Amino acid sequence: MNVNYKIPQSVLVVIYTKELDVLLIERADRPGFWQSVTGSRDSLSEPLEQTAVREVFEETGIKVVQSVQSVSDHEVSLDCLEDWKIDNVFEIFSVWRHRFAPGVTENTEHVFGLQVPEKFPVVLAPREHLNSIWLPYREAAEKCFSHTNKDAILRLPEHVK
């Protein structure tokens, strides 16, 4: 049997406006667990920036595009995506360990920020998320279940352009 395990390298993408409003999404498999966009690399060769772009689109419908001239509704320029150069290593919750190869207990999360021009309505992947909400950054940080997500959001003022 060929099993495709998740790679224990992921991204956390904080989506925010210049007014410091942050988008949070509620997990479908854990109602009440709010977070920013997260997701694992599809392959070891997938660049982390591409993982971030893919996950933002899959989880919110927001497209991060190469060319500024082509930006339209629900699209943001790649220039608005910033690698915050923060890596968090944490223990994978036991409830999710079955997704990873036997013996894998830790994940390395790479933090990105995506500044959007306005609070977009989002298109959720129904199997992954139940609801979305835009909140001022301090309120968003308090609502997150993950301490690494909370810490990243609280650093937001350092990254606003």
Rank of each mutant, 00 (worst) to 15 (best):
K6Q: 07
V11Y: 02
L12W: 01
V13H: 03
V14P: 02
T17E: 12
K18N: 13
L20R: 13
V22L: 06
E26A: 07
R27E: 10
D29W: 13
Q35A: 03
V37A: 04
T38K: 08
R41W: 00
E46I: 03
E55G: 07
E55Q: 15
F57A: 09
I62A: 07
K63R: 15
K63V: 05
Q66K: 15
V68S: 08
Q69E: 13
S70N: 11
S70R: 13
H74Y: 15
L78E: 06
C80R: 15
L81M: 05
D83S: 09
I86V: 11
N88F: 13
V89I: 11
F93H: 13
S94M: 04
V95N: 11
W96T: 09
A101H: 11
N107H: 00
N107A: 08
E109K: 08
V111W: 01
Q115P: 01
V116P: 07
K119H: 09
F120Y: 15
F120A: 10
V122R: 03
L124Q: 01
L124T: 00
A125I: 03
R127N: 07
H129N: 12
H129S: 09
I133F: 00
L135Q: 05
E139T: 02
E139Q: 14
A141W: 00
E142Q: 14
K143L: 14
C144M: 13
C144H: 02
H147F: 14
H147Y: 14
T148D: 05
L154N: 01
P157L: 02
E158L: 14
V160D: 01
